[in-house]
Amino acid sequence: MLVDGIKSRPQYPGLTADAFAKVHVFAADGDGAQAVIDLFERQGRDINGRVIVVYADTAPGAPDYASRLEALPVELVHCMPTVATAITRLVGVLNVARMGTRIYASGTETMIGLTVQLAQELGMDPATVITEHRGSRARRVQCVHCKGMTENVTTNIVTCAHCGLSLLVRDHYSKRRAAFQGVCVDAEVRGEIPEITEIFK
């Protein structure tokens, strides 16, 4: 019924330093911290000016990313407990951002997606956010029927957390919604549901 390889699926080419930026704002969650650390190892001398990190400390197994981030030549690391609180903090950081600010996002697709969405809402070109995927491939899915968001989806089919319909998770992605699209999978014959497999690990 639906196809793979949809073109609206975001690409995450990897972090590279913007040598011309005056302020560097990093938004990361979980293993995304390692992408920031790797960037500083690789291109640290290209990162000039102020550096601010907003980090959602969600990595499993407590690898102590927070203190490793603080050991970098950064002005401040905002260490937050969840993606949601990190995004709220990011709003505060970006609200006072000026010309010459570069945004980097690394970690889960959800963290990257919400950062890009926020940048767009603040009037920046979403394509200018530099991104790198690390860690879980779990998706944020919007139910096309009730519009509710279901977080951390790892299976091809998921029950909508709001209206309860069984949703097929498509590759069709909206930057504005920061979500993949979920469409009722058994609309033609209720209860006729393909095998459920974990594909977004």
């Binding site: 949809i6 609206s8 590759d171 069709h172 909206s174």
Partner: peptide
């Protein structure tokens, strides 16, 4: 439309 609004030509034709 609600999902596709704000997308570019390549994105909304993605599927």
């Amino acid at each position: 439309l609600d999902f596709d609004v704000g997308m570019n030509f390549m994105e909304w034709h993605g599927p």
